[in-house]
Amino acid sequence: MVILLIVGSIVIGFMVGVLFLGFSRKIKARIHWRYGPPLYQPIIDIVKLFHQESVSHGFLFDFGILLSLGGAIVTLLFIPIGNIVPLHGSGGLLVVLYLMLIAPLGIALSSVEAANPNVSIGISRKFILALGYEIPFLLVALSVMTNYGTTSFVEIVELQRASHWGIISMPLSGIALLLILPVMMGMKPFDQVGAPQEISSGPEVEYGGIYLALSKIQHIYLIFIDIALFVALFMGGGSEPLTFFMKMLPIFLIVLLISTVYPRFRIEQAFNYCIKWPTIIAFLGLLLVIWR
């Protein structure tokens, strides 16, 4: 039964992530007054990449990308997709906090093996950004754990269903997490890591063929995880997968619209942004939770 749930959530996470990605390309095109690619264009791309020749640069190059994809998938298993929770231990939120770092670490491990200078710049940017968003993210997680007195996702979702959504009981923490969501997802104002025009798409510069496909799949999972985290913590999760996805959609749309309109920040601007407003708001949110 658990295995079935695991496979099911992996497949569902992939399908929904791909759908979101295709949807995002379509929406972006409509905002540019273009027709845009078909909705299933990400699938075509991934199928193509699997059929291409791929060049390996050593053992760590292969291992790191698998580690990153594995990290993303394992993180996914701890997050409740509606009522599907393949792995529900008591330390759910804490485990997710740790596991979310594995995916970027794997990418760093793998891409540095290619010894391209653009990779080093991209990786250093990634960790500067991570340093920026981890502080408000930890503050938000702390306030959620303090408010509900538990670290289990399932209990958090159930407590929200019993009273009201987390965004109402902890509005400041919710806003702080929403503010750093584009940074965590690496969407447009904060896509310094994989900036194609500046550093030739950063860590992905030497990826081709299957490696690029795995990297894209990993990115799809990360997008899914980040939005699902917000929905589970602050929007009451969902009693079934479908309502969960319906709740994910507006959050994704907000991030997408911001990313379509805004140009890219410089890295120090992004870092300053992260440690200024989201951190202050998250800290105030924590104080509010403790005070109550």
Binding site: R34, Y35, P37, Q41, P196, S200, S201, Y207, L212
Partner: peptide, 19 residues
Amino acid sequence: TSRWDAERFGVIPVATPRQ
């Protein structure tokens, strides 16, 4: 870009020859 929109055909520019 908007005028002719090559993305309809799946044609997009990428930054590195490996991709």
